Simulated scan of single mutants.
Amino acid sequence: MRATGIVRRIDDLGRIVIPKEIRKTMHIRESDPLEIFTEHDGSIILKKYSPIGEMGQIAKQYAESIAATLPHTICICDQDSVIAAAGPNGKKLSGKLLHEQAEQIIIDRGQFSAAKGDQNFVPIISDFPDEFTNQAVATIIAEGDAIGLVCILSNENKMNEQDLTIAKIGASFLGKQMED
C-alpha cells in the first residue's frame, strides 16, 4: 500500500468520503459497488467490486472457446477493464483499462457491429491497437444491470450478422451466469 497523505474523519453515521482525486484515478463512480476487506493489522481495504471479475476463469474459457472457432480476437470486459482476451492479438488487450467511449457503450447498453471510420466504431481500450479495424460489441446485462461487454475484433474481415449474434449470445450467457 502507498500513502496518499489524505486524512478523513468518519461522520456520526459512520460514513467516510473518498476524495474526488482518488475516485477519478480509480474510476470509481457514484453507485459503484465497493468490496471491503480487513487485515489482521487493523487495515481496511476498499476494492472496486467487479461481478464479471469474480468469474474471470469462466470468461477466459468462454473467450478462448469462441476464438478457437472464429479467426477473430475476443475480449470480455467489466465496467473498467478487459478481464479476458483470446485469439490473435488478445494479449495486447488483456488487463487494459477501457476507453471512456467503451464505458459509455455499457451505460447505453449498446449492441452493434462497425468498421473503423464508422460513427459507431469505438476504441475498446485507451491505446487501442490499429490492427483492429472491425468490431461486434454486445453489452452484458445481469439482473437488469449493464455490467460489461463482449467484443469480437478483427483486422481483416468485416463483421457480419453472425459475428454480432455470437457477441450477443456471449453477453447473454455471461449475464445468465452472473444471475445464477
Rank of each mutant, 00 (worst) to 15 (best):
D32E: 01
Q162N: 11
M26D: 01
A138G: 01
T4I: 07
D145R: 15
D145I: 06
I28L: 12
S154I: 04
A142R: 09
G175H: 10
A86M: 12
S43Y: 12
R109H: 12
D163I: 07
A67M: 10
K48N: 05
G144R: 09
E156L: 11
K20G: 03
E35K: 14
I36F: 12
E35G: 00
T38I: 06
N89G: 02
T4G: 01
E39K: 09
L70T: 09
A85Q: 10
K60Q: 15
K92E: 13
R15G: 01
G56H: 07
P51F: 07
R109W: 13
E64Q: 12
K20Y: 06
G117E: 10
S94R: 13
I147C: 08
K168N: 13
A59S: 09
I58R: 03
E131H: 11
F173N: 04
A167L: 12
D127I: 03
D78F: 04
I28N: 04
E100P: 15
H72L: 15
G14Y: 07
R9W: 11
F132M: 05
N160H: 09
I28H: 00
K92A: 14
D80F: 00
T38C: 07
I141P: 00
V122K: 14
R15T: 09
N120A: 15
S81D: 09
K96Q: 15
T133R: 08
E103S: 04
A115M: 10
F128C: 06
S172H: 14
D80R: 07
D80M: 03
V17D: 04
I83T: 05
V137I: 15
S94G: 13
I66D: 05
R109T: 12
G144L: 07
K47N: 03
E103M: 13
G175Q: 10
K116R: 15
E143N: 14
A68Q: 11
M26E: 14
A59G: 01
Q135K: 10
L153M: 12
I28D: 02
L93D: 12
I141S: 11
E35F: 08
R8G: 00
T165F: 13
I105S: 14
P33S: 10
A63W: 10
E161Q: 12
T73E: 13
M159N: 06
R15D: 07
S172L: 10
G110P: 09
D127W: 07
L98D: 04
T73N: 12
R9Q: 14
L34V: 12
F121H: 07
E179K: 06
E39F: 04
